[in-house]
């Protein structure tokens, strides 16, 4: 049976899209390894294997062609994003459970590739940070990059106090929230070398790596400018505004943009096409909404980072936003009036 027109297609595939996304993550991962050791690679491997296994089982149970879908690379993208948002020294089962939640529940129980209303990686993050807040808050400090203790942390009995610390974002939030401390942003950020120059020592370079990967995705036209720009600009404007208003209580934009998962979110998480908005205006609103909620949760909330919750909340709103932001079709924009 021969197909109908068009008879030839541009060489493009879901697999090629996903592989290029993975490729774009590499600079950030390289910086990550450089500053925080090889543990992240172990986590990525762990997450990848779990994701592929879970994907294969679910595809089989759902009666789908296993090899065709396993090769599409979407499970790997989810796995890598989970590994990169979880603490690199998280115990192995934390990553495994997170990946299973993402692949089995958030992806396949909702209908598999292309059908999930929520970003699977963010479902995993939100679930685990609610269930295991302390484990999700233990991050390696710069300098604790030896593989042996890291492996021990991942696979062995937990004796972590020596090498873990909160992320800069978390540390700042805790310090500012402690009532008796009367801490100021400048005081906290200046108190410890681990806060680095911009957004936390080491983390600013990882963020720069993600930024580089994001530029590649833009160049490859896998993502459009709308979401990263709206996300980063909103975060910049709101944190800048509040920092101007009271610099002792609100961290400035450079810290907000280069700390935590902001850069990763801007180019790799917010931009997930399946669970996000698709119209140009919708993308702007969607990403700006995530940035706003992220800032609110980071500043006033009880969790170390707010991106996951912000993304999930906007995921729910995405279809509605899309519905109200449909671009005008041909002949209906600045419609030239028919001549009188």
């Amino acid at each position: 049976m021969l197909n109908n027109s068009p008879y030839f297609l541009k060489p493009a595939s879901v697999q090629s899209v996903m592989l290029r996304v993975l490729l774009a993550l590499l600079p950030g991962i390289a910086a990550y390894v450089w500053f925080f050791g090889a543990a992240i690679l172990v986590q990525i491997a762990l997450a990848s294997v779990t994701a592929l296994a879970a994907e294969a089982v679910m595809l089989h149970l759902r009666g789908k062609p296993v090899m065709m879908f396993l090769g599409d690379g979407s499970a790997l993208v989810t796995a890598w994003l989970i590994a990169l948002t979880f603490p690199p020294i998280a115990p192995w089962w934390l990553t495994v459970v997170g990946v299973l939640a993402a692949i089995v529940v958030a992806k396949h129980l909702y209908g598999g590739l292309g059908q999930n209303p929520f970003n699977p990686a963010m479902v995993a993050f939100a679930l685990m940070i609610v269930a295991y807040p302390s484990l999700m808050s233990q991050w390696p400090g710069v300098g604790f990059s030896d593989l042996a203790p890291q492996l021990n942390a991942i696979f062995g009995p937990r004796q972590l106090d020596a090498i873990t610390m909160a992320t800069p974002l978390d540390a700042l939030r805790t310090a500012l929230h402690t009532p008796e401390a009367r801490a100021t942003v400048a005081g906290v950020l200046g108190s410890d070398a681990s806060f680095g120059n911009i957004g936390g020592k080491g983390w600013e370079w990882v963020a720069a790596g993600y930024f580089l990967g994001g530029v590649y995705l833009l160049q490859q036209r896998i993502i459009t400018w709308h979401m990263p720009v709206a996300f980063l600009a909103t975060l910049l404007v709101i944190s800048g505004g509040f920092s101007l208003y009271d610099a002792t209580r609100f961290a400035g934009p450079s810290f907000q943009l280069f700390t935590g998962g902001a850069m990763l979110a801007a180019f790799f998480i917010v931009t997930d096409p399946v669970s996000g908005c698709t119209t140009p205006r919708g993308k702007l609103i969607f990403a700006a909404g995530i940035a706003l909620l992220t800032w609110v949760i980071r500043t006033f909330g009880a969790y170390p980072d707010g991106i996951a919750f912000a993304v999930l909340l906007l995921n729910i709103a995405a279809p509605l936003i899309d519905m109200y932001t449909q671009p005008p079709v041909f002949g209906h924009k600045n419609k030239p009036a028919a001549r009188p």
Partner: peptide, 17 residues
């Protein structure tokens, strides 16, 4: 494969659909 809503189709649609 299933649609992943990548939006490439909307980018190339000459009728702005």
């Amino acid at each position: 494969m299933p649609c992943i809503r990548c939006g490439d189709c909307a980018k190339v649609c000459p009728a702005d659909l």
